[in-house]
Amino acid sequence: MSSVKNYIYLFFFQFIAFSCVQPPENFPSVPEINFEDMAFSSASGADSLIIRVGFRDAEGDLGLNPTDIDPPFQPVTFRRNNSGNLIVFSQRPPEAPAYNPIDWAINPIVNNVIVTDTVWVEQNENHNNIFIKFFIKRNGVFTEFRWEDPPYFTTFSGRFPRILNNNQGQPVEGSLQYAMLSFGWESIFRNDTIRIDVQIQDRALNRSNVVSSPEVTLNQIRRTAR
C-alpha cells in the first residue's frame, strides 16, 4: 500500500484558471482560440506547467461553475446491463476493464443515493471545458503521451469558471491562464521535447479550434518562482 500512496502523491495535480475579459464585436459563435504562452515553474512543493491561450466568442457562454453538474455536464455516465441495473465490479462481464480509477467509481452517488459498491462508469467529456493533450518527441516524431493509460489513469483536461456571471449572451475576448500542478513533471519528461495541444468548449458544446504550443523542453521555458 505504501507504494500506491507514494504514487498518488507523486502525480497529484490540480488546476487553476484565470481570465481577463473585454467586449469585442463581430466574433464567431464557435469559440476561437490562439496560443499565447507556456511556462514551467519549479517550487519546493508541486511544480507548475502553465499555458495561456487567447479566446474570442460571440455569446460569451464560456466556463462552468462547480454547480454545473447536471446533464450534459455530469462527471460520468453509469454503465448498466440489459436489465437496466448498474454493473458492479464483483459481477462485471468478461469485456469489462480491470479496476482503475477512470473506469470504476467507488461508492458513487446515483440518483441522490450512495451506492456502496464499485460501479462501472464512462467518463463524460462534456464535464470538462478545456481539453489538454501532451505529445513527446522521440526519434524526430511526436507521439501522444496519454495520461489516461497505465500507470497514470488520469487527465490534465479540466474546467475553467464562467467568464460571465449572467446568461445574457454578449461577445467576449480575453486570455485564459491554466496551471497544471504536479510533483512529477521533471521525473517524467526530463530533457524530452514536448508539445501541448489545447481546445476549449462553450456551454452549447461547441468545440473551438485546436492550438499547439511551441516544441520545447522544460528547461527552455523554466521561470523562477516568485
Rank of each mutant, 00 (worst) to 15 (best):
P161F: 04
P28S: 14
V198C: 06
Y7F: 15
I163K: 02
N34S: 14
F89D: 00
A17N: 06
F55G: 00
L164C: 09
I188N: 04
P150Y: 08
V110S: 12
L64W: 00
F27Q: 13
I163R: 05
G184W: 03
N126Y: 08
I109G: 03
S2K: 14
R146A: 11
F189M: 12
Y99Q: 07
N111S: 15
I87C: 08
N209I: 06
S42A: 14
Q220R: 13
L10W: 09
V141C: 07
D202M: 08
F73N: 10
R203P: 03
N65A: 14
N167W: 05
E144A: 07
V172Q: 02
T118R: 12
V4A: 13
L64M: 08
A225V: 12
D202L: 07
I132N: 04
T217L: 09
H127E: 07
F160G: 00
R159W: 01
D117T: 09
D57W: 01
A39K: 12
S208K: 01
S48E: 07
N81G: 12
R222C: 05
I132P: 01
N6C: 09
D47S: 15
D37H: 12
F40C: 04
N26E: 14
Q74F: 02
N100S: 10
I106R: 14
I51S: 00
Q168F: 12
F134E: 04
L164V: 03
V4G: 02
Y99W: 15
F183I: 01
A39S: 13
S3D: 15
I163S: 03
V141L: 11
V115K: 13
E215H: 10
